[in-house]
Each structure stands twice: as structure tokens, then as C-alpha cells.
Design a protein around this nucleic acid. Sequence first.
DNA 1: TAGTGGTCTAGACCACCAA
DNA 2: TGGTGGTCTAGACCACTAA
Lengths: 251, 251
Amino acid sequence: MGTTQLETVPEPKYWHLKTVLSEALDSEFAVGEILPNERELAARFGVARATLRQALEQLELEGRLQRRRGVGTTVAPPRVGVAVGTEQQTWPGVNGDDWQLVDCALAVPPAAVADALATGRDEEVHIVRRTRMSHGQAVAAELLHVPQASVPELSGIDAPSGPARARAVLRELQRLELDGQDRAVELGSARADDAKALDRLPGAPVLLVTTRFFAEGRTAALSVATYRADTCRLTFGGGVEIHHGPETQAS
Amino acid sequence: MGTTQLETVPEPKYWHLKTVLSEALDSEFAVGEILPNERELAARFGVARATLRQALEQLELEGRLQRRRGVGTTVAPPRVGVAVGTEQQTWPGVNGDDWQLVDCALAVPPAAVADALATGRDEEVHIVRRTRMSHGQAVAAELLHVPQASVPELSGIDAPSGPARARAVLRELQRLELDGQDRAVELGSARADDAKALDRLPGAPVLLVTTRFFAEGRTAALSVATYRADTCRLTFGGGVEIHHGPETQAS
DNA sequence: TAGTGGTCTAGACCACCAA
DNA sequence: TGGTGGTCTAGACCACTAA
């Protein structure tokens, strides 16, 4: 009974490591600076490399570090605020947004997309691929699914594929009157092709933004955008910048 | 030269494993069903347990699996849609939202919060803690930071702490006229206390929703809400449910 | 080619939960 | 108490980058 109750919850080593490293990052390192390599750090802290890596992974998840194979581990700049929800709801591709058209193809979408669009599960839709640039870096890759019914005038005309085709699909889409839209954000991991577009490894954590565009009483298009979770902070509403700082560490 | 170029990109074992498991989950398992334990699965696939775990971690990140120490690994239900951005902007705590007041304290917030509120870095603010329930489960924990200047009438009256105090702070806050608000979503890892409130381990991936409330020409309150990233899909706008399906696996 | 982070192994022990 | 997932070790080899 009378035993002093210290260490009721023995903190895992990697968790403690993360805290120590985090504080060191705040006080002793500048953005962009290269950390000692993993073997050296592990030795310095007296832990196995795997344990050290567990701490680094968490810090990378929080956007504090950036690791590149063959190069090293660097201190990451604060996350970039990326405006996702503007007040005015518009079709994709209007005026000067910072999306770049990549290409366009006709293909059968995943079942979940087909269901959301209420197209048949074997029905081909236009899939426009776009990339979003911010501060000279790709921050998002998007697949915009447009049922053929939404762009009826398109059939046969214009280029059969490529950016020209993508432009044509967006142009036709903008002829519809937009009734409203809908967004959802969730955590995911990067598919192989998205990872390549975002310069990350497959499986990297991403924020998945799903947008439904409504017109003529149905879902006229569905966008699935994959944002880099390590470098991006998605902003809604005002779109004003807010200061960023350490916010989710252990104390 | 003439050599056939197979296996140009040798897929990591854990990645392939994840794909195989993912397909098995779709076809052979029902929601809530318990998978074989990790040692058994590793043996069955002929890999080390650590490798198997790497695959399971990814699937958990994508919301396909749920792992609980001492219990086992189960097939997770589809993510719950949680409405975060309603059309009408309101103060927290008005009418029947699904937040539960936990307590309230006067404390010095992290530097990042103090900066956003434009309070001094040593200035104490009211910190109201709330928990959001959905489908009988805690999906979010929130810290609502309210500068003392925003609730001047509060000083000294009412209960000094606890839920009653929290109620009083919110009541006073609602007397201000809300000029607008602002949201940002980013990836984070759960602090120890949030993890406990959300029934997860510390460091679990979370979606961090930061909301600024503007009134009287300044930031009158700042909310930092921590949502479980494994079980939640944050919805903005309509708030309508959309069908969920596998969307970010390798193919 | 040397050095980095990424993957993988085959163990061990611990914290937690249910029976 | 037995079985689960969580942590940790001390190696090994591989893929990638830059010099």
C-alpha cells in the first residue's frame, strides 16, 4: 500500500526520444539543416536504429522532418496553407486556379466512385488528371471523374486524349449550372502513381479530399484529390494564413 | 540489351502483403471479424512479424483494420462521416451539438495558440475541454481557448472550474456577435491526454482541426480539435453521407 | 563509390485484456 | 493465466543519391 507510485506509465523509449528530438529541433536546428544520420543518432541516444526510426517517423508525420533516401534527414519548413474550401463554389478549372492539367482518359472508375456518380459499375467515365502546384512544389494530385452524361457534346470532337482533351472536358462541364458542392477529408496512403506525382514513396500519408459537384439534380462530377499530408495544411473559409507551431507533441 | 526487363521495380514485401490482405478483407471477411493473430499471419505468409506489422499499420491508417492490444485485430467498419463545416457559422456550444463539456481551466496556452489569439505568451486564457461523441464513440477531443478579454463578465462569478465553469464561459462567449470563422485541417499525432480521451495509444494519427472565431475585430476564441483519423471522415458543406469504399490502395 | 534512408529478419520482453 | 498487440534489439542487405 505505502509504496510510492512512480512510473505508473513507463513511457516508451521512442516516445521519449521524439520529445527530446522535438525540443532539439526547436532550439538547435534551423529549417533545412541536415541532421546526423540514423546510425549516428541511434548510437548517440543509445538505442537500436529501429527505435530511433520510430521517433523520426512520428516527427515526419507531424511535418517537422523530411527524410530522403540517399540524401539524409532535414528539418522541414512549416506546413504550407493550401486553400481548399473557398466561399464561392465553382467548377474546377475556372479562371486562374493553381491546378495544371495533366491528361484525360476514358476508363471505368473504382466501384465507390461509380456508386457516388450513380453510373453503372462497368460504365466508362472521363477521368481528368490534374496536379496542384504551390511554392514550386507539387502538393496534390487529383482525379476528376466526369460521367459522359455530364458532357454530352464532347463525344467524338476535340483531341482523343491528353491535356487538350482534358481542357475540352472542363470547358463542357462549365456549361452546366452548378447547384452546389460537398467535401470530405480523410486520411489515406498514397497510391503508387500519386506518390510519384507528389515525389513521395508509395504508402506515404496523404489527405484525401473528395468533392462532389451537383448539377441538374445529380452528381455531375466527383473529384478525388490527394494532398501531401506532411507538407500541407488544408484551409477552409477565409483562407487566411495562421501561424504554425508545435501543437501535438507529448509534453 | 535484349534481356527482358521484368521486375524493374521490386515491390517491397510489406506493400505486396498489404495488397493481398486488402483483397482478402474485401472478399473473405465481414466487418468486426477477428483476423488471425500477428504471429500466425506472419508465419502463414512466410515473413517476419515486423514486416507483417508494417502491412497491418498501413491498413489501419487507411481505416480498414482496428487493432487493440490484448484483444486482437478486427475488420473496421467504414469510416463515420463527421460534419465539421456547417453552412451557418456559430459559436461553439449553441443549441444541440454533439459535444460534451468536460471541464475548464485557466492556463497559459502553447506559444502558437497565444500568437493566434494575440495574447501575451505568458497570459492565461480559459481552456474549455470538450469531447465529441458519434455513434456512441468518442471521435474528437477539443481544447477551446478563450482569452479573458472575450468573456470579461466572467471574472469571479460562477464555479471556479469543472463543467459548470465551462458552461459559463461558453454562455458568455455567445453574447458576442460572431463576425466569421476560419478552419484548417492537418495531420498530427495524438498527445497523451487526447489519446486517452479517444481510446487510442499516444502518437496515433489524428486530424487536427483548428478553428478561429472572429468577433469585435479580433480572434475571440481558438479551437483545436483532435479527430481520430482512423475512424473519421470529416465532411464540409452539405454534410450529406457519401458511400465509402477502398480508394487508396496499390493496384 | 561512399553514404544515406528503406526494407527485412529472428528473436526477446512488456502491457494489456478476457476468461 | 494465456494470448494479444506494442516495444525493442542487433544485426543484414537493398535502393537511391551525389560526388
